[in-house]
Structure formats: structure tokens, C-alpha cells
């Protein structure tokens, strides 16, 4: 038994705790615990932190497959569902922050924003696609949906694209940060395309195809 296998039991709780750290900081900051402060505009800080964490987790989730293949880090596969669920969790918190703390649950204003502001329209579309993925992430749903589960979960790609686009569209002038996210996403998508193309030609030659994302 090598070292990565010996500590297998640790991976899930460790990732679980790490993924909760951004939320822990926000909660501590909101209540002024341990001298943590969210600055002069805490609502904006919570909104942005949740949005950014959601996007980061989406990209990390997408990076699992390439890491498994290129780095032989097979243990990562067992973490992918949790990472994806945390992405959906932070995206939902991001939306709740927007609707509740930022817009004071003024549904008229929220609806107007969703219809009139393209970056919010896009964010909403991404969130609406994330929800069915989170719901069908259980083993039961996997079995029930069979091959269609795979198809459904390819939605993670358009969701990530919309997420980066949403980020890009709301910055005022400094696009360096969304640009970095876009570059990482492009690399991940590029990798997918290459693998897909290779597996198609391999199938044509009678070898087994690469499994889904």
C-alpha cells in the first residue's frame, strides 16, 4: 500500500473542510469573530467572495479529469462530486446574497435585473443549469438516468463558460482577473477537445473510447 492510498480516508474530510473555509471567513467577518472584518461594504464582499469561490470550484471540478489522466491522481475522482456540489452551494449562496442582502428581496427589482442586465441574465442561466446537476448528483439518480446522466452532466461546460462570461461582463475596466479565469477555462476546454478527437479516431480504429468528462 503506497502513501497516497494509506491516507485515502483523509481526502474527503480534508477537502470538505477546505471548501468550507471561505464560508467560515464570511460568517466570522459578518459577526466580527476573531477580529476578522469584511471591510466597509460587507454585502459586496460576501457577494464577490461567494461568486468567485463558486467559479474557482467549477474550474477545479473541471480540472479533475485531466489531472487524473495526466498526473495519475486517481483518488481525485472520488472528490469530484463533492467539489461540484460545493460549487453549486457557493453559487446558490451568491444568488441568495444578491437577492436578500443586496436587493432586500425586492422581487420586482430582481426580475428587472435578470431581464435587463445581460451579465445577470447569464449568471441566472448558469445557476439554473447548476441546480439539476446538483440534484442528480446522487448514486440513485446516476443509476436511474443511465447514459443520459452523462449527457446531462456535460452541462458543466456551458455553466463554466457562462460563469466566466458573467464575471467578465461585470468588471468595470480591469479585465486581468476574468482573463485569467478565461485562460484556465480555455485550457480545460482545449484539453477536452483534444481528448475527444483522439478517442474518436481511436474508436474508428477499433479501440475503446475515452470515458466521459
Amino acid at each position: 500500500m503506497n502513501i497516497t492510498q494509506r491516507y485515502r480516508w483523509l481526502y474527503k474530510p480534508a477537502v470538505f473542510i477546505i471548501a468550507l473555509l471561505p464560508l467560515a471567513r464570511l460568517v466570522a467577518g459578518a459577526f466580527g469573530i476573531a477580529g476578522i472584518s469584511l471591510g466597509a461594504d460587507p454585502v459586496n464582499e460576501i457577494l464577490h467572495e461567494c461568486g468567485k469561490t463558486a467559479l474557482q470550484l467549477l474550474l477545479i471540478t473541471l480540472a479533475v479529469r485531466p489531472l487524473v489522466r495526466l498526473g495519475r491522481l486517481h483518488n481525485l475522482l472520488r472528490l469530484r462530486r463533492m467539489l461540484g456540489l460545493f460549487a453549486a452551494f457557493y453559487a446558490l449562496l451568491h444568488f441568495v446574497t444578491y437577492a436578500w442582502l443586496d436587493q432586500n428581496l425586492d422581487f420586482q427589482a430582481i426580475l428587472a435585473d435578470i431581464l435587463k442586465r445581460p451579465y445577470i441574465t447569464i449568471g441566472m442561466a448558469a445557476l439554473l443549469m447548476l441546480v439539476p446537476l446538483a440534484v442528480t448528483s446522487t448514486n440513485g439518480w446516476m443509476r436511474r438516468l443511465g447514459r443520459r446522466w452523462q449527457k446531462l452532466h456535460y452541462l458543466i461546460y456551458p455553466i463554466a463558460i457562462l460563469g466566466v462570461w458573467h464575471f467578465w461582463w461585470q468588471v468595470k475596466a480591469d479585465i486581468r482577473e476574468p482573463l485569467a479565469y478565461a485562460a484556465i477555462l480555455a485550457a480545460l476546454l482545449g484539453y477536452r477537445v483534444v481528448v475527444k478527437a483522439r478517442s474518436v479516431s481511436a474508436t474508428a480504429r477499433g479501440r475503446s473510447a475515452d470515458p466521459a468528462p
Binding site: A30, V43, L101, D102, N104, A109, D113, K116, P118, Q170
Partner: peptide, 22 residues
């Protein structure tokens, strides 16, 4: 007159509580 990407109808006063109204 809205900014094309967001509304200018309301504002958040810095320094209010987390649940302060715009």
C-alpha cells in the same frame, strides 16, 4: 438614467448593517 449594466435607482449606504435596506 441607468448605467447600461446596472440600475442607478437605489444605492447602498456604506456603514449600515448587513440587512440594511437600500
Amino acid at each position: 438614467v441607468d448605467h447600461p449594466r446596472w440600475s442607478q435607482a437605489t444605492e447602498r449606504r456604506i456603514g449600515g448593517s448587513l440587512f440594511a435596506q437600500r
